[in-house]
Design a protein around this nucleic acid. Structure first.
Lengths: 195, 195
DNA sequence: TCCTCGATGAAAGAGCCTCTTACATCGCAG
DNA sequence: CTGCGATGTAAGAGGCTCTTTCATCGAGGA
């Protein structure tokens, strides 16, 4: 809600939104502070009042993405069977990645310095925690085991998502058949946990 | 071997080398054609005689990386036990990624347009083929099954590698303990294939 | 031997970008 | 109603990519 012609009123939010939009359209590399400012209709220097630099704008989008990812994973219902549940969580992860591939890439972009944006590491920690909670019943009481298995499940889901996002699995999966890879992998993995 | 002071003689190779070096030092985003030219000691326009653009230089480094990855995976000995073999291949994949994380990122960088550099998709196909060969004994005769399982193994290895490269698994693995995640995941997966 | 030609280099510039510095304008607290 | 902090603009330094134009080289034919 702009309070006046001069002062935007909520420039920070507006910039965040247009940044997310630009990333979706052109990818992280295609995004520029200049164009974000232009689209919002402010001068090129204005964004620097709200964000340290270009990287900080991308980091903010990434952080927001992690929050939504967390909600998505938390929203997966427990179907009773713990193997089925693990599969469902991994499928939700992959679905999230494919829903907005550019944002997913920004969330895991190497170009963002984690020392300057420690909140990103926290987000990763929360994903890890959520998976641990979900796996406790499947894995058993060993705390170290739960931690390790959560990392494994995350790795499987993330690997499928990353390769799909990068179009490296095109030969394998037919159209709309993406989930068979992640489902197959997680099912085998979860089955193998018992044996 | 410079043939003269004016003509470099092997500028293309020299640029490739310094590009790989720059990527290792500063990451894909930190790399610039200008600095590569400066380091080799030629004008800024010279690289454009040998590469279409900046992206082509990165793509060349990525392609070379895929070749070496292929060799690394092919070089994994068959220890007899097919589960152990799958684990060893995945560990080799992760080891390759950690040996030069920046190059690994470039190999899977979204910023490189695959339409303009189809050789990168071919490389991915070769990795896929290699894994299929390695898994044939473990999976059995079903050709479609081999294809799917190879994609799964690749996904697991790639997921662990990507998360380790992005420092997202720091809480889980102690120093030098990275391999436990990929080994555990692949072992469970391969075990579950049978059951 | 000389000369031409194609390949490979340099020089210079257009246009874009990030980020900084100095200044203008606003709303609000006292 | 006044002064101050927050938030905007203007202008510019310095860097980058890529293009265009020109200079220089090596090699092969006359």
């Amino acid at each position: 809600m702009p309070k006046s012609a001069y002062h935007h009123g909520d420039l920070r939010s507006a910039l965040l939104e247009v940044t997310a939009q630009l990333v979706r359209e052109k990818g992280a590399r295609g995004f520029s502070v200049s164009e974000a400012a232009r689209r919002v209709g402010v001068s090129i220097a204005a964004p620097y009042r709200h964000f340290d630099d270009r990287e900080a704008m991308l980091a903010a989008v990434a952080t927001r993405g992690f929050t939504e990812l967390q909600e998505t994973l938390d929203g997966v219902a427990d179907p009773g069977d713990q193997v089925v549940r693990a599969v469902a969580i991994a499928e939700a992860y992959v679905g999230f990645a494919l829903a907005d591939t550019a944002r997913f890439e920004v969330m895991f972009a190497a170009s963002i310095d984690k020392d300057r944006h420690p909140e990103l590491l926290e987000c990763a920690g929360r994903v890890q925690s959520g998976l641990q909670d979900a796996l406790r019943e499947l894995v058993g009481d060993d705390p170290a085991g739960v931690v390790r298995r959560a990392a494994e499940l995350w790795s499987i889901a993330h690997g499928v998502a990353a390769l799909l996002v990068e179009d490296r699995l095109a030969h394998v999966v037919g159209p709309a058949g993406e989930d068979t890879v992640v489902a197959g992998a997680v099912r085998a993995w979860a089955t193998g946990l018992a044996g």
